[in-house]
Computed example of a mutant assay.
Amino acid sequence: MTEAATRHTPGTPCWTSLMVHSLSATQDFYHALFDWEFAPGPQQLGAYVRALRDGRPVAGLGELPPERQLPVSWLTYLSSNDADETAEMIRACGGTVAVGPLDADEAGRMLIAADPEGAVFGVWQEDEHAAQRQTGAPGTPVWHELTARESGAVAKFYQMVFGYEPGAAESTPSPDPGRRTLHLAGRPVCAIRSVGRALPRDRGAHWMTHFAVADVDEAVRRVAELGGRVVEPPSDGPTGRAALVMDREGAAFTVVRAAGT
């Protein structure tokens, strides 16, 4: 469950970002949890910083305008060779485009959209800096998963827009029959998990970012100490040891054991 360290194939999760009400407090939380440092990022949508591990970007943090009292959540971006063309495909396939496409300084071109079930995601038309991102190590995003009521129809949407390979998810038996893995060029890149009526009413369909950590149990203890919340305690599952947590502002994310730790 690691992201490619080279320029991403269109449809591959390539970035994750979080818009919050207090940027400084959120920086303190993730610095203490993941040892992130920060550098200024594109400012088109307001104050924004890039989180760095060993000098390489791993995620983005932005600040919401004071008048926008919205719930916060991590946003998964899917790679595109042409954000404008992808925006048209999203609309044609039953999704909506809420922001953009627009240029994000030298970083590329982006948009924010929602699929037919209402799950919000981003699209990023990357530049050559994609290869400089830090991936796979503790403190970096290593997997992205869509939680939806029913995976069939929404999977068709993503297959039509991004070209995920039809039938790849069913080629081998899955230890979790509710999870449909999406492939590109024969490689698993993300997944859709069908939960039916168990879908949280306060969140609806949503993308989830999984961050690698050296020790899941220690990371969960650290989240609680820093003022976050443990939603699902550590457990061993089909993809290894993991836990679902929230930061101080209620943004949910999963921590998973990093490969080789």
Score class of each variant (00 low, 15 high):
E218A: 15
E145V: 04
F162H: 05
V220H: 02
D176F: 10
G204A: 13
A198Q: 14
A155V: 00
E165N: 13
A169G: 15
G139M: 03
G152N: 10
L146E: 02
G178W: 11
K156W: 00
D115A: 09
Q132S: 14
R197C: 06
A191L: 05
D127I: 02
P138Q: 09
P177T: 08
A185D: 15
R193K: 10
I192W: 00
A219G: 10
H129K: 12
G167N: 09
V120K: 01
V195N: 01
H206P: 08
K156H: 00
A205D: 07
W143M: 14
A212Y: 06
P173H: 08
V213H: 04
R203F: 06
E218L: 13
D202Y: 02
F121G: 03
R180H: 03
G136S: 11
E145Q: 12
C190S: 15
P177L: 12
D217E: 15
T135V: 15
Q125F: 08
S174H: 11
G204F: 13
P173A: 09
A130P: 06
F211S: 04
L146S: 04
D202C: 00
A198Y: 12
R193E: 01
A114P: 07
R133Q: 15
R222F: 04
R133F: 09
A131V: 09
Q134L: 05
F211N: 02
R203I: 14
D115I: 03
V223P: 10
H210I: 14
